[in-house]
Design a protein around this nucleic acid. Structure first.
Length: 202
DNA sequence: GAATAGATTGTCT
DNA sequence: GACAATCTATTCT
């Protein structure tokens, strides 16, 4: 297969406004190499988080802590956080230093290493259930807090070029606490893709 | 298919 | 001590 035609994205990609980056990341391929092998998937769903004004973001109102520190760093790094004690979520940091923006990757379409993903996600009954959610895709690719702050333009965990079909948008998922920001259509997904986590409601 | 409740742990107040 | 950008099993249509 010799790389399956996968080449890393240019670093300049990350130097875009967060809403533009969230849209452009759809179709890109997330690759993770481990001792167990290579696993990779096409990104089919993202969400933009634009602190400090966006109350849905962890960096809302400029909150800068040990947990959110990566969002204040340079773009193109990974921001990882743990949800409900059980699920890791993977984000791509956007915005220059001290601008705490990030893009949450919510779903992938499995491309490489399907068997490896299945062995990591024993609960998944179907191929679709391997990576159709933020916590599921990190489990399938073997990503966790150890990836906090790593450079995504190169390395074991990296983003590679890929293409996407027509892209739709909708409000973000499960941020009911965010007041007026709840309805902002800052979720991007590939239209009609079966691997999108939650069917867009219209 | 849709709705509901319980799990589980690092981080923050 | 409470919470969270979720997942899973269970229950009901």
């Amino acid at each position: 297969m010799s790389g399956a035609g996968l080449s890393p994205v240019a670093r300049e990609l990350f130097d875009l406004p967060v809403l533009v980056l969230a849209r452009r990341l759809v179709g890109k391929v997330l690759v993770h190499e481990t001792e167990a092998g290579i696993a990779a998937g096409r990104i089919v769903e993202t969400e933009a988080y634009r602190g400090p004004e966006d109350l849905a973001a962890h960096s809302a109102r400029g909150r800068r802590t040990k947990r959110t520190e990566a969002m204040f760093g340079p773009p193109g790094r990974a921001y990882m956080f743990l949800l409900y004690g059980t699920s890791w979520a993977f984000n791509v940091v956007s915005g220059r230093e001290d601008v705490p923006h990030a893009v949450l990757v919510r779903a992938l379409e499995p491309l490489v290493g399907l068997e490896l993903m299945a062995s990591r996600r024993k609960r998944a009954a179907t191929a679709r259930e391997l990576t159709n959610g933020p916590g599921k895709l990190t489990q399938a690719l073997g990503i966790d807090g150890a990836a906090y702050g790593v450079d995504l333009a190169r390395g074991k965990l990296r983003l590679c070029e890929g293409k996407a079909g027509p892209i739709g948008r909708s409000p973000r998922i499960n941020i009911d606490y965010a007041g007026p920001w709840v309805t902002r259509p800052w979720r991007f997904f590939e239209k009609g893709n079966r691997h999108v986590s939650v069917a867009p409601r219209i």
